[in-house]
Deep mutational scan, measured.
Amino acid sequence: MRSPRTRGRSGRPLSLLLALLCALRAKVCGASGQFELEILSMQNVNGELQNGNCCGGARNPGDRKCTRDECDTYFKVCLKEYQSRVTAGGPCSFGSGSTPVIGGNTFNLKASRGNDRNRIVLPFSFAWPRSYTLLVEAWDSSNDTVQPDSIIEKASHSGMINPSRQWQTLKQNTGVAHFEYQIRVTCDDYYYGFGCNKFCRPRDDFFGHYACDQNGNKTCMEGWMGPECNRAICRQGCSPKHGSCKLPGDCRCQYGWQGLYCDKCIPHPGCVHGICNEPWQCLCETNWGGQLCDKDLNYCGTHQPCLNGGTCSNTGPDKYQCSCPEGYSGPNCEIA
């Protein structure tokens, strides 16, 4: 077999650049994923090309098998939009790539799955459409700058595939050579959905506090709520009108309100015997008056200043008058 000629994957630097851009600016990249293909086995019993010639040398006159050299087999892949009637021409609109030389006439790579040499990765940054057309071609490398490479066999497949970690196996069982391969579509990290176009990256910072479920939905951490999980859940009972919080379990009062639940107004400074319904009010309790509710309107009842059976009459805020019984006098009937 001729010395292998290595063929790198098509578009790999571009895919790395796209992945970097997506990581830095995830909101700009609407989708991100990759179409993967792995060659599993190849069977070319006679070492022939599609045109019937030998990959190298002439045929044995007896059994008609190619004798001089085995094929240097590598694969090309073209991925494009779905076609009900597949045409070989036209651009590979979803991507293209190739393997290096991975074997001779016949080989089996099932035991070495995950080997990069027999895998082609086609990254995409558009919403995966699920339906596709795939062209797979086996080629013989001439290892010659003058002699062109020659095609051994080709296969085409049109179908639908959803993103999954599971592989789907396909076979080419007609023509001079048979080969088996597997395909799958996977979303990149933080991308979800059938189109790999739903973005969700767990975070716990100013912009949100959430994890992501298997469908890419945000699940808020304990103590947080809202579409972006950036609204803290305040202390139970915290007034929704007069209290708020920036951290879970907190209850910060608005100006003019106080209390554990921010449901108590702050009265006017200096208010003595008054209450409030709104901040800075001083609504006097019964029998109290004045701007600060510090004037006693029922001095008689509060202090009972009249002595010796005198009768007390309220005459104004903090004022009274005693009517003394016979034989007593003085402001409080204290003089006998």
Rank of each mutant, 00 (worst) to 15 (best):
P13T: 15
R5Q: 14
G249R: 06
Y210D: 14
G195S: 10
Q304H: 08
R201L: 13
Y192C: 05
P123T: 02
F206S: 06
P100A: 03
N298T: 02
G52A: 04
P331R: 11
I39V: 08
L292I: 03
E38D: 07
E222D: 11
G175R: 02
C196W: 00
R117G: 04
R113P: 10
V77E: 01
R130G: 09
V86F: 13
A88T: 11
G52V: 07
K171M: 12
Q254L: 07
D294H: 03
G159S: 02
S313N: 10
C187G: 05
D69H: 11
T73P: 09
E326V: 14
P163R: 03
L297P: 02
G259A: 03
E180Q: 09
M225V: 12
C187Y: 02
P240L: 01
N143Y: 05
K198N: 11
S93G: 10
G249C: 06
K80E: 12
N44H: 04
H209L: 05
Y261C: 10
N108I: 11
S112C: 04
N60T: 15
N215K: 08
R85S: 08
G193A: 08
G243E: 03
Q166H: 13
C200Y: 09
F206Y: 03
I233T: 04
S150R: 05
G259D: 07
M225R: 07
Q168P: 01
E228Q: 11
C229W: 00
S156C: 14
F124V: 05
C333W: 02
Y132D: 03
C71R: 15
E326K: 09
N314H: 05
L109R: 03
G30V: 13
T302P: 02
R130T: 08
T286S: 07
F199V: 04
Q254H: 06
K65T: 13
N298H: 00
C29F: 14
L260V: 06
T311N: 01
L122R: 03
D144N: 03
A211G: 07
Q83K: 10
K110M: 12
P317L: 14
A19T: 14
Q182E: 05
A127D: 01
H178R: 04
G103E: 03
A26V: 14
D140A: 12
N173D: 08
C196R: 03
A336S: 15
G289A: 04
T99A: 02
D189G: 05
K295N: 09
K154N: 13
L40Q: 07
C66W: 15
S141Y: 08
Q168L: 05
K80N: 15
S329T: 08
E36K: 02
C196F: 00
P331S: 15
I275T: 00
N197T: 14
F124C: 01
I39S: 01
C55Y: 01
C245S: 08
T219I: 12
G97W: 10
E222K: 06
C251W: 11
D149H: 09
N143S: 11
W280L: 08
D189H: 07
I161L: 14
P61T: 10
C293W: 00
N298Y: 01
E81Q: 13
Y255S: 09
A177V: 12
Q291R: 10
M42I: 11
G95R: 00
H242N: 04
I152V: 07
C300Y: 01
P305R: 06
T106A: 06
C187F: 02
C276G: 01
Q172E: 11
N287Y: 00
E180G: 09
N287S: 11
E70K: 08
M221L: 13
R184L: 02
Q304P: 03
R184S: 00
H268Y: 10
S323A: 07
S32L: 09
K27E: 02
C29R: 02
F126C: 11
Q304L: 15
F35I: 10
K241T: 09
V176I: 09
I120M: 07
Y181S: 00
A31T: 07
L134W: 01
S150T: 14
H157Y: 12
K80T: 15
I152N: 02
E48Q: 04
D63A: 04
Y255C: 12
K218I: 15
F94L: 11
V28L: 07
N298K: 03
E38V: 13
Y190S: 09
C271G: 00
S41C: 02
S10F: 13
F206V: 15
L297F: 05
P13H: 14
H268P: 11
E334Q: 06
D205N: 09
G249A: 06
V101G: 03
S15R: 08
S3A: 14
G52E: 10
H178P: 08
V136G: 00
A232P: 08
G208V: 08
N46T: 03
G8V: 14
A111S: 03
N314S: 03
S93T: 13
Q281K: 03
T133K: 00
C92R: 10
R9P: 05
S244F: 06
S323C: 02
A26P: 03
L297I: 03
F75L: 04
D69E: 14
C262F: 00
D72E: 13
T145S: 12
T186I: 06
L79H: 01
Q214H: 10
D250H: 02
R235G: 15
N118T: 15
K76N: 13
D189E: 07
C92F: 00
C78Y: 05
A138S: 02
P248L: 04
A155D: 08
C54G: 06
Q291E: 10
T87P: 15
E81D: 11
W280G: 12
C238R: 09
K171R: 13
P267S: 07
S323Y: 04
A127V: 08
G330R: 06
S323F: 15
P91R: 09
